[in-house]
Amino acid sequence: MSHISLDMDAVRSEIGEYADTQTALSEREQAYKDLVGFVPPRIAARLAVTGAIDPKLLRLQEEVRNHALYPACFDTKTAQLIVFGMLLARLLDAATLHARAARRAGATWEEMQAVVSLAYLYGGIPSANRGAEIIAQLAEAESKDRLDTTVKA
C-alpha cells in the first residue's frame, strides 16, 4: 500500500481547522481506528481537508459509508471479507486495509484464502499473487504483534 506523509499542522494552517460542528474529528477517526486499528493516511487527509472546507459533504460521505459498510444483513466480518474481495479483484491497494479489518473482525486464514480464491476467478493470477502477499503480510504483522506483546509482558 502506498503511504502518504503529510504535515497535518501545515495542512490545517493553509486550509483551516476541521469545521464540522456536529461530529468531532476524534469521533470520526475512532470509527476507523475501531475497524482497521489506525486512521489510514488518505482517510486522515480527507477528514482534515473536506472536514475543513466542506464539512456537510464529509458528513454525507461518512453517512453513506456507514450505511453501506455496516448493512443489517451482514456482520462486520462478512462485510469486510466482501469488500476485501472486491478491492482485491480490482487490485486496489485499499484491499490491504479491508483484509486487516476482516481479520480484526474475526476472519480466519481459511476465509481470507477463500476470498483470494474468489478474486482469482475474476482477476486472475495478479489477484491471487496480491492476495497471498496481503495474507502473508498480515500473518507477519500479527506474529510480530504477538511477539512484541509477549516480550513486554
Rank of each mutant, 00 (worst) to 15 (best):
S117W: 11
A99N: 02
V36W: 02
G51Q: 11
I82T: 08
V49T: 07
L97H: 13
P40R: 05
A119T: 11
Y70G: 03
R100T: 11
A31V: 09
S26Y: 00
E27A: 12
Q61I: 15
N66D: 03
L57H: 07
L25N: 00
A44C: 01
I82K: 08
Y120N: 02
E111F: 09
L58R: 12
L69G: 15
F74S: 06
P40H: 08
A107Q: 01
A102N: 01
T108K: 10
E63Q: 13
E63G: 12
V36A: 01
R104F: 09
Q113F: 15
A89W: 01
T96C: 02
E63T: 15
A24N: 03
D20G: 04
M86A: 12
G85L: 08
M86K: 09
G37T: 07
I82C: 12
L118F: 12
R100E: 05
I53P: 00
P71W: 04
I82W: 08
Y120C: 01
H67E: 03
Y70H: 12
L81T: 13
R103H: 13
D54V: 12
P41N: 04
I125C: 06
A68H: 13
V115N: 01
L88H: 03
V49F: 00
R90L: 11
G123H: 08
Q80E: 12
L92I: 14
V83Q: 02
W109L: 15
F74R: 14
K33F: 11
Y122S: 09
Y70C: 05
T78L: 05
G123P: 03
G124F: 11
D20L: 02
Q61N: 14
E63H: 13
L69K: 15
C73H: 13
A119K: 09
A94W: 05
W109D: 12
I43F: 02
H98D: 01
G85R: 08
R28I: 05
G85D: 01
A105R: 13
A94T: 14
Y32Q: 05
T21E: 10
H67C: 09
R90M: 08
Q80K: 15
A107R: 03
A95L: 04
I125F: 14
G37R: 11
V115W: 03
G106N: 05
A119C: 05
A48L: 03
D54T: 14
L35Y: 04
I82L: 14
A99P: 00
L91I: 01
L35W: 06
S117E: 14
F38D: 07
Q113N: 15
D20Q: 09
T96N: 09
V36P: 00
L88A: 04
W109R: 15
D75I: 10
A94Y: 11
L25D: 00
G106T: 12
A19I: 06
E111V: 13
P40F: 04
T108M: 10
R65L: 06
R90D: 06
L58G: 05
T96F: 10
R103C: 09
G123I: 09
A79S: 13
V116T: 08
R65M: 02
F38V: 11
L35E: 09
G124N: 09
G106M: 07
Y32D: 00
V116P: 00
I43A: 02
C73Q: 09
V115H: 04
G106A: 06
T108S: 15
G123E: 08
G124R: 10
A44V: 03
E110S: 14
M86R: 10
T78R: 11
G85W: 04
L58W: 04
Q80D: 10
R104V: 06
R59W: 04
N66L: 06
K77H: 06
A31G: 01
